[in-house]
């Protein structure tokens, strides 16, 4: 006997993500999901981004790692509100699911935030599959990886709204072909903005910050005072 089902397996995560979206909308906070492979310099990009945005823009960060609080400790120095999720307690998972974001966002409290950044677990496969209720997704690729990563992990680059090509200060010492990497990203996601920068030196950071401010309609401090927030 055949029993018809016709159900999406990730439906529960999707409804959790929808609940998150409603919560973030109510709190008027813009949520950015940052993803990359391990070692691309995602935390360094975030540190540099926070340095430039704060204190004008009030930022919170949810950091996902399988183990350790090292990234959260680095980010706390910037003065941002930081909370850590260690998926180890949940079975050493490889991505952040929507229900984990829900509990962390509520614990962090979003009332006094303009921007919430989720630093996802370093992995180019699984996080692409799980909606967390974010407003935008950014993927970080670094010049110490292969130019063909966008072709190898197409879903990640397809679902991203923007990409960062990090560590460009190392280009003189590598055989990495930056133009080819950008071309590959454009094949997978034509028209996606790609920001070539060095989080270490700060070179190229401005266009990325401009994109983030514009995309998130992030208010400047003086505008916030005018709006009485």
């Amino acid at each position: 006997m055949e029993v018809n089902i016709q159900k999406r397996v990730l439906a529960k995560n999707e409804s959790d993500a929808d609940r998150n979206r409603a919560f973030f909308k109510e709190k008027q906070v813009f949520v950015l999901n940052m993803m990359s492979s391990p070692g691309s310099g995602k935390t360094e990009v975030l540190c540099r981004t926070l340095e430039n945005l704060m204190p004008d823009i009030r930022v919170g960060v949810i950091v996902g790692d399988i183990c350790t609080t090292n990234d959260a400790d680095r980010l706390s120095v910037t003065g941002a509100k930081v909370t850590q999720i260690n998926t180890d307690q949940f079975g050493g998972d490889c991505h952040l699911a929507a229900h984990l974001i829900e509990s962390s966002a509520r614990a962090l409290g979003c009332d006094d935030l303009d921007l919430l950044i989720v630093e996802n677990i370093g992995n180019l496969v699984c996080p692409a599959e799980f909606d967390i209720g974010e407003d935008a997704r950014a993927v970080v690729l670094s010049v110490t990886e292969g130019e063909d990563k966008p072709l190898k992990y197409p879903l990640m680059f397809q679902v991203a709204d923007a990409a960062i090509l990090n560590k460009i200060d190392l280009l003189p010492y590598l055989d990495f072909d930056a133009a080819l990497a950008v071309e590959n990203m454009d094949k997978v996601h034509p028209g996606m903005p790609v920001f070539e920068l060095s989080a270490k030196t700060g070179e190229g950071i401005e266009p990325w910050l401009f994109w983030l401010r514009t995309k998130g309609q992030l208010p400047l401090l003086n505008q916030r005072f005018r709006r009485g927030l």
Binding site: E2, N4, K7, V9, L10, D186, H189, P190, G191
Partner: peptide, 19 residues
């Protein structure tokens, strides 16, 4: 053009079970 909609290719669905 790069603005595209994915009509299919991301499904993870259970269609039925056979007892």
């Amino acid at each position: 053009n790069g603005q595209v909609t994915m009509i299919s290719g991301r499904e993870i669905e259970i269609t039925s079970i056979e007892l």
